[in-house]
Design a protein around this nucleic acid. Structure first.
Lengths: 191, 191
DNA sequence: AGGCAATCTTGTCAGTGTCAAGTTGATGGG
DNA sequence: CCCATCAACTTGACACTGACAAGATTGCCT
């Protein structure tokens, strides 16, 4: 990788993106260095900047890609619970994307491509509660469902629920967790 | 602040911690610079290192403080729902702590003080579901409750639910959200 | 064929974290 | 009262980083 025949790399943008995802998944976004990514791609230290402008630009591109992956992962899932399961699966399948997507201080918030991708994912999230019967406040219901899935995904990725899983896949555990919730086991005390 | 009579600062550790929290709350942990904190405290560039060893050490100290604040915020709350509300309030009252606590790649995971504080907070979280009647799997119920509160807090802090709040305080919104959940509005479709 | 624009390189600058070695001054034992 | 000791802070240095500017190379389009 580090030596190259041609002057042009050919696929530098994808190379850098892939390497960046590896680094972020392994050591977090803070460990990401444009110069290091350049070295891995066998390219001069300033080359990545031509594709992403900035460190922020690179992270913004990753976040945008993440929102599109999320939208694709949720698309065409009729049932709300299963949508939650897929949300969790997305987070575990693409931990680097997920991390970056929800760290706004790393991103250029007004980037058009980011906003467009975010809107596509947002539409999928809204669609999850759109068809629910007997829900007076669909928006709040949506936020409740999103909170549950997002919270579980986040806690899993930060290593806060490992013990409870007992070897099970996180998405499976989440499926049974929602079962517990929605059959009225948890409520108990209502004031 | 930037000029000083005495050679010793007197309270550098607290000064640096306070300044760090400001920076993190405003621009995120990535924007944090030890040299900048030193300048703000009117002290030489290597002074903070004497108190925190590292950038990682500083962030670890913040996380430990955060877990203790969380434990204190949760202590003595009998009802589970109200515990969730307090969790959300903690996150909004101490956004910098909250952010750092749940970014393990910024922390020294084996730090004794961090582990101790984390355990204190963890005990409070467990206590929340301990007294629940009719709950076969208390651990899973606890993770469900934690996921919901944590997810909502995270989504709020990342600016993903602003529109839905409509001016209300996030903790109030969360209270009504849990009401919606626990009165069986959301379940609807059960497969 | 020729020019144009995208891609990549080279060189440079200020800023950062971290380490090592020196200064200052508070504190407590003789 | 004095002085040794030690924590708190300073100074200086080094390697590394992101960012910018200016030049080299090459694919592509007319």
């Amino acid at each position: 990788m580090t030596s190259r025949k041609t002057y042009h790399h050919g696929d530098l943008r994808q190379s850098v993106l892939a390497a960046a995802l590896d680094v972020i998944a392994a050591e977090g976004p803070g460990a990401l260095s444009l110069r290091d990514l350049a070295r891995r791609a066998g390219v001069s230290h300033a080359a990545p900047a031509h594709h992403f402008k900035d460190r922020t630009g690179l992270l913004t591109a990753i976040a945008a890609e993440g929102y599109d992956l999320l939208a694709a992962a949720l698309a065409g899932t009729p049932e709300l619970r299963e949508r939650g399961v897929r949300y969790v699966r997305f987070a575990t399948d693409h931990p680097a994307h997920f991390q970056v997507m929800f760290q706004p201080d790393l991103l250029r918030a007004d980037d058009p491509e980011l906003l467009a991708a975010k809107e596509r994912a947002s539409a999928e999230l809204r669609a999850g509660v759109a068809g629910l019967p007997d829900v007076p406040d669909a928006r709040t219901a949506g936020i409740a469902a999103w909170s549950l899935a997002h919270g579980f995904a986040t806690l899993f990725l930060t290593g806060n629920v490992d013990a409870a899983l007992g070897g099970r896949e996180p998405e499976e555990y989440f499926r049974s967790l929602t079962g517990l919730l929605f059959t009225g086991q948890l409520p108990a005390e209502e004031q």
